[in-house]
Amino acid sequence: MHGVKRVQYSKEVLEARKQRDQARLKDYLALYEQVFQKRKNKDFSQDAFDSTTNILRMNPELYTIWNYRRNVMTNGIFPASDPSKVNDILSDDLSLTFALLKEHPKVYWIWSHRMWCLEHVPDGPTDDQLKGWKTTNWKKELFVVEKMLDADARNFMAWNYRRYILGNMDPPPPPSAELTYTTKKIEANFSNFSAWHQRSRVLMSLWKEGKLDEKTSKQTEFELVQNAMYTDPDDQSVWIYHAWLIDAGEDTALLRREITSIQELLDEQPDSKCTVYGVACPIQEAHFGEAFGQLGP
C-alpha cells in the first residue's frame, strides 16, 4: 500500500515463519483426515464432537463438517443428555459461532448453524423453563446481529439473519422499532442498500396489514430519500429505493412533483449519471400516464 513502509524480514525470520506454516498445515491435514474418517465410521461420540470443534476453528467453511457435527449432536450427544444439558450445549455452539463470525462474518455455514441451534432448543421440563430458554435465546440473537451490523452495516448475510430472528421472536418487536433501526443505519451511510431493502420490506408489511397509512408514510420516505439524493446524488442504493417508492406512477401528482424535484437536482449536478436516470424514470411513467389520459393538461 502507498505510504506504508515495507518491512524487511531477515532470512531467519522468514524461515521460522515458513516452518510454522508448514507445521500448521500438517496438523490441519492430519485432523482433516481424522474427522472425515470418524464421519465415515458414523462415530457420534464426544471425541468426534470435539474433533469437529477443532477443525471448524481452523476452517469454518467446511459445510460437510457442520453437517456431521449436527449428526453427532442429534444421534450421539442429545439422546444421552437431559433438556437442560442440551440447552447448555446449544448455547456453547452459539458462543462458538459468534467467535467464528467475528473473523468470518460472511461465511453462510456459520449463520446456518446458528439457525439450527435456535430451532433445536429442547422442550423444557416445565413450560415456563421452555419459554424462558427460547425467549432468552431470541433476544440474545437480536443483540448479536446488531453487533455484527455495527461492525459491517452492509453485511447482507447479517441482514438476512436479522429478518430470520425478527420473524421468530414471540412477541416480535414493534415495527416502529425496525423503522427506527433502519433510519439509523441509512443516515449513517446512505449507500447501505441492505438497510434500504429492509426498510421497504417493513413498510410493505405495514401497508398490507393496514397498520400504517401508505400515503402519509410515503411522504416521509420521499423526504428521507431526497435528503440522501442531495447528499450523494450518485449513490445507486438511493435511486433504487426512490424508484420503488414511485410505484409505477399510480399517483400522477407525485410523479410531477418528483420530476420537478429531481430536475432541480440535475441542474445542480449536470454530470450525475444517476440523477439523469432518476429523472428519466418518473418522466417515462408520466408519459405512460398521459398516453392513457391520466395526467390531463
Rank of each mutant, 00 (worst) to 15 (best):
N67D: 15
Y28H: 12
N160W: 08
M157T: 06
S51C: 12
K102G: 02
D47M: 05
D47L: 13
H120Q: 05
N87D: 05
G132H: 13
L254A: 11
A286D: 13
L255C: 14
L266F: 08
L25R: 15
S200R: 11
R20Q: 14
R39V: 07
L179W: 05
T182Y: 04
E250C: 06
E285S: 15
Y161T: 00
K38F: 12
N87R: 10
A188I: 09
I77H: 00
S217K: 04
W66H: 01
Y9W: 09
E103M: 12
N192D: 06
K40W: 12
K106G: 04
P171R: 00
L31R: 10
D82W: 00
Y108K: 05
T53D: 13
E15P: 07
R70W: 11
I262S: 05
T53Y: 13
F156P: 02
K102Y: 02
N54W: 09
N168V: 01
I186P: 04
W196M: 06
T135F: 10
A243R: 14
Q19T: 14
L101I: 09
Y32H: 15
S176I: 12
E178Q: 07
C117M: 05
E264A: 15
V238S: 08
K215M: 07
E119M: 09
P282N: 06
W244I: 00
L203R: 04
L90G: 10
K218E: 10
W133N: 07
M148P: 01
F288M: 09
D235M: 02
Q22Y: 13
L224G: 07
A151L: 04
K131W: 08
A228C: 05
T260R: 10
D247L: 07
W133R: 13
L255M: 13
L149T: 03
P79H: 08
H113R: 00
Y9E: 12
F36C: 12
Q19C: 01
P60I: 13
N59V: 03
G278W: 07
M1V: 07
Y277F: 14
N155R: 02
L203E: 04
Y241E: 03
E209V: 01
F156I: 09
I110L: 06
S217R: 08
V238L: 00
D123N: 14
L62V: 11
L255E: 08
V72H: 03
K139E: 15
I262E: 04
V202W: 00
D170H: 08
T182D: 01
I77E: 03
D92E: 14
L62C: 06
M229L: 14
L295R: 10
S237K: 06
Q263L: 06
A248R: 11
T53E: 12
N168R: 14
K85P: 01
